[in-house]
Amino acid sequence: MKPVVHVENVSYAYDGGNQEQVEALLDVSLKIWPGEFVAVIGHNGSGKSTLAKHMNALLVPTRGNVYVFEMNTQDESWVWEIRQTVGMVFQNPDNQIVATTVEEDVAFGPENLGVEPGEIRRRVDEALALVDMTGYEKSAPHMLSGGQKQRVAIAGVIAMRPRCIVLDEPTAMLDPVGRTEVLRTVRRLASDEGISIVHITHFMNEAVYADRVIVMEEGRIALSGTPREVFSQPATLRKLDLDVPQVTELAGQLQAAGVALSRCPLTVEEMADDIGTLLGRGPCRSELHSH
């Protein structure tokens, strides 16, 4: 299997004014596989947005290479091909919707690619169905909720038939309902449609559902692994001012006090299962409960 995106020893520096070079990325390497859901977490200025922009040639590395399949992003002749393959969704839902109706906006990408009208229609309908926005074709963007706008933006990318979607903090400006909507949508795209997802976020509980979590700090990859591997290092995360899900924190405290939990739970269900197993194994269940 070939990676969709291959980031190879990439460094990126830009002129931060006052003749200061700001090193936003330092020797970052990373592969995104087909259908993989990767969460990237880190603070503002950790380099995660810069990394994202490298994945579809909005930025090109100062050193190192980024390949989208076999296409090097340094090679300008591939740029449109690359952007079609790796789509991008941004933080502010208002500032990425171009058209005055939902369907026209979703059609914007395919129109730029020169897709013929009948096919655009099919793609628009299909993309809106995938993000659960069928029925809003004629709606004006400013009348939609934040979560709906972000789903329209995702549909606009899907209509270009990408192999990978990079979402740069798509939930930062949304309320919990909007966040859930967006997260559910991207998870489904990865699992059902085989589209690779790179989900950049501040929210730890969104990273729990990823296949892989990458923690960025000061332009480098500080931690990387499955959510369980990453979240079972609370000391490291705390040093980076990042928190773990509350249940994971609780499990850590309980384990430190001598409670025997066999794994590091990440969700309420997992934690409840583990507690159930533990208590189920205890011989005096009813007696314990009377305390």
Binding site: A256, A257, L278
Partner: peptide, 24 residues
Amino acid sequence: LLPSLLAASGMAGESDSPCGGGGR
């Protein structure tokens, strides 16, 4: 949670800390 869980753990006799021991 601690009292009941500790009691139950005593029976099970495990003492791993897969969550990094609370990280404190």
